[in-house]
Computed example of a mutant assay.
Amino acid sequence: MEQRIIIEMGMGNDLHGMDYQKAARRAIEDAIRHSTLPIFQSINLDHTEMRVQVTVGVQEPDKLDAAALTAGLPRGRATVQAVKGGLNIPNHETGDTAVVATAAVEAFLPSQAGRWTQS
């Protein structure tokens, strides 16, 4: 059985290129920058025991390369799922469309029940 140990949210954008991949990468990086997991050093736990699940929302999820986003994650056994979300914000004066991506980064560990003792 796994237990979720952290969930962080992030937001990223691409203001002029309508690049969903860039916005998604920035959203994931934003979420990751909001957290630290000292548990791995504190109890000598290998980070490969952690499963990382990332959900990224953009208006056109089929334009994301989930494998490339997964490869950019620093720790754990990761997966990235693209879903419809985020925002497209057209600028009718310039013809540009700004894209906003949102990301939720969740980390799970096997149950730690019974593995710790207080001394």
Rank of each mutant, 00 (worst) to 15 (best):
A66M: 00
A67C: 02
A67K: 13
A68W: 07
A68Y: 04
A68L: 15
A68N: 07
A68F: 05
L69Q: 06
L69A: 10
L69E: 08
L69K: 07
T70K: 09
A71M: 05
A71Q: 14
G72D: 11
G72M: 09
L73K: 01
L73S: 00
L73V: 09
L73R: 02
L73Q: 02
P74G: 07
P74K: 02
P74W: 01
R75S: 14
R75D: 14
G76D: 10
R77T: 06
R77K: 08
A78Q: 05
T79N: 08
T79Q: 10
T79Y: 03
V80M: 01
V80Q: 01
V80R: 01
V80E: 01
Q81N: 07
Q81R: 14
Q81G: 00
A82T: 08
A82S: 15
V83K: 07
K84P: 05
K84D: 10
K84L: 11
K84G: 12
K84E: 15
G85N: 10
G85I: 08
G85D: 08
L87P: 03
L87I: 13
L87V: 06
L87Q: 15
N88H: 11
I89H: 14
I89N: 11
P90M: 09
P90R: 14
P90V: 12
P90I: 09
N91F: 02
N91C: 04
H92C: 03
H92G: 13
H92R: 10
E93R: 11
E93I: 04
E93S: 03
T94R: 10
G95E: 11
G95V: 07
G95R: 04
G95F: 07
D96N: 09
D96F: 12
T97R: 07
T97L: 03
T97W: 03
T97C: 00
T97P: 02
T97G: 06
T97V: 15
A98Q: 13
V99Q: 03
V99D: 00
V99K: 00
V99C: 05
V99N: 01
V100C: 05
A101I: 00
T102I: 07
T102Y: 05
T102L: 06
T102P: 02
T102M: 01
A103I: 01
A103K: 06
A104I: 12
A104R: 11
V105E: 01
V105G: 02
E106Y: 04
A107P: 12
A107R: 08
A107G: 14
A107I: 08
A107V: 06
A107N: 04
F108V: 06
F108W: 15
F108H: 13
F108A: 04
L109F: 07
L109C: 06
L109K: 03
P110S: 12
P110K: 13
P110N: 07
S111Q: 14
S111Y: 12
S111T: 14
S111C: 15
Q112V: 11
Q112G: 11
Q112D: 04
Q112A: 14
A113D: 11
A113G: 10
A113R: 14
G114S: 05
G114R: 09
G114N: 02
G114A: 15
R115K: 14
R115D: 12
R115C: 04
R115M: 03
